[in-house]
Design a protein around this nucleic acid. Sequence first.
DNA 1: GAAAAAATCCAAAGCGCTTTGGAGAGGCAA
DNA 2: TTGCCTCTCCAAAGCGCTTTGGATTTTTTC
Lengths: 352, 352
Amino acid sequence: MTAPKTVNLKTLSQALGLSQTTVSRALNGFPEVSEKTRARVVEAAKRLNYRPSPSAASLATGKSRLIGHVVSLSEHIMINPHFADFIAGAGEVYAQSGYDILLRLAPLSEQERIYVNLAQDQRVDGVVVHGPLTGDSRIGILNGLGLPFVVHGRCDDVGEDYSWMDVNNRRAFHRATRFLIELGHRRIALVNGLEAMNFAHRRRQGYDLALEEAGIAPDPALLFSADMVEPYGYNATREMMALADPPTAIVVASVLPAIGITRALADLGLRPGEDVSIITFDDCLSFLQAGYRGGARDIPYFTSMRSSIRDAGKRVAQMLLERIDNPSASPEHELWEADFVIGQTTAPPRQG
Amino acid sequence: MTAPKTVNLKTLSQALGLSQTTVSRALNGFPEVSEKTRARVVEAAKRLNYRPSPSAASLATGKSRLIGHVVSLSEHIMINPHFADFIAGAGEVYAQSGYDILLRLAPLSEQERIYVNLAQDQRVDGVVVHGPLTGDSRIGILNGLGLPFVVHGRCDDVGEDYSWMDVNNRRAFHRATRFLIELGHRRIALVNGLEAMNFAHRRRQGYDLALEEAGIAPDPALLFSADMVEPYGYNATREMMALADPPTAIVVASVLPAIGITRALADLGLRPGEDVSIITFDDCLSFLQAGYRGGARDIPYFTSMRSSIRDAGKRVAQMLLERIDNPSASPEHELWEADFVIGQTTAPPRQG
DNA sequence: GAAAAAATCCAAAGCGCTTTGGAGAGGCAA
DNA sequence: TTGCCTCTCCAAAGCGCTTTGGATTTTTTC
């Protein structure tokens, strides 16, 4: 069928009667080649099915056209399902610009070393930092390496500037908690993510602030912090509902544990909204999306703070590609506000 | 701090007073270098923090130490959450062998072209084929390219041999359906995955066979085929339960729609197990795992056919690495049987 | 002790691309 | 015509590694 012999720059330039230099320049859009020649080269390249070798180009330029995503395996979650949607968004952007994702799994403790190696090896042109902690040491390392990077989220207490894209978690949780307070709730639980993670830390701040403004003392028995999986929501709820003074409302960090909460309530014969109000942060996870809804109707099931993690992935990818194109530009920051969507899981607390 | 100047083979060999050849051979474990010299070289390499350049090595050997995973974005699911767990398993194996994942997002229609390009570019050393269809044309292409690959699942009606790793979906669904029949159920619904996918096709065959053996005519009103997301299970259930003759049992292809089923039943005031039996295929998704369970107890919630998709990822990765090491070996096949685990969602049908 | 065999090591030729530092060819003014 | 641009294009030097085809030294064998 097609030519079995691989055509490289040398072959192509010989076929055209031009030098490799000219062909290379023509293909890469350099100005010192006439449009007529360029057209001829481009046509021949297409006709002969010429594709430049990535490793040769990489060796010559130092650019790999690979974006590093190094993700850690947490205790319960192998790969975070939130991450899957994030990468889907990012991957779309990369694909459009001819980049690929280099995915590496590694425990958090090895990530700094990995960044150093990736940079030294010139294996990737940039990296996305996932799951930033408060005062994350990876930022300092990356700044020192000069490897372009963008953080998904933020790290407080890092004494350096860096590019990040984040959702206003503090405000979202402040608003959600205040909403519940205004409905009349006083016993409000927080089923949070791991508070070592900055996003969860900030969510906690928002929750705390709303309680404080209302003069409600936080109750440690209503505070949870763990990996955001389904059984976590279930177990936390079973535990809380067994208290002498159970909560009348729950703010939860992800739809995954929120599902666990509804399952626990169902076991107890309780109905979300009517018996216990629930507000969840909704990352618009695709496999729950397009309606974890109340039926044919378009009313969402959960009352939620909503922000698409997939869109976040897109945006972070764009920011990173811009940084790669222009590494000396000063860091950029982007903060998104979450939507607040009222669904069927919130109501004033039961009387009595 | 550390040496700012990058140390390459040339530098290293000069520092040692050896030729690049010897150093290269020492580092790569060739026999023609004495153990004494090798030890000396290895020590110096470590001390000087020498790391061979991947792109240079790749250019010289034609090996990239990258494994291609090209995944498609389906209609509802951006990236399949089942895929996330699969890649977690595979990634662990790759990491141990010094491989990385090259992840590319692309619609199914472009995948053949992408495989051709990846092979021609020598960008990857092998690929994993995801989501095989019945009679999938990707197999023929890949065999023709000589690019090592392993299929996760199987493609029937492909007139060629190839390596695959699959779960015995037909037998699992046959067994589950027969189990329900033996409990006394006659109205058994199938909430299947997309039946264009081979795994779903086989699941359907198992279901059909069990019905046929029991002399039950399949009812199209009880057959569903779609992307395995939560709302799918919800909607299918709402639809079926509104029938004049609703099902008393449901066999479902994933825990995700199974959760939707339980939500729909809860809306209708029905209890899984007691009112409607449910058997689901359980891929042991990590974010539901470690117990989508019935409480503190260790009795699983769903009665299920269980097979860890993460373990499948590990196994597929191993098989692929073996194929890469030994490309001329004849294709390997591996078929796993799913466990059948009895939980709380199955019981004989209600009387009357 | 010499020849043969084995053990070490090396120089240099790629792998396929980019890029530096010109060179040749026209066009224009003087 | 000569001199000086501007336009096009090119030869060759890397990028850092692997590997071929010896060369040199050491060990073994008779």
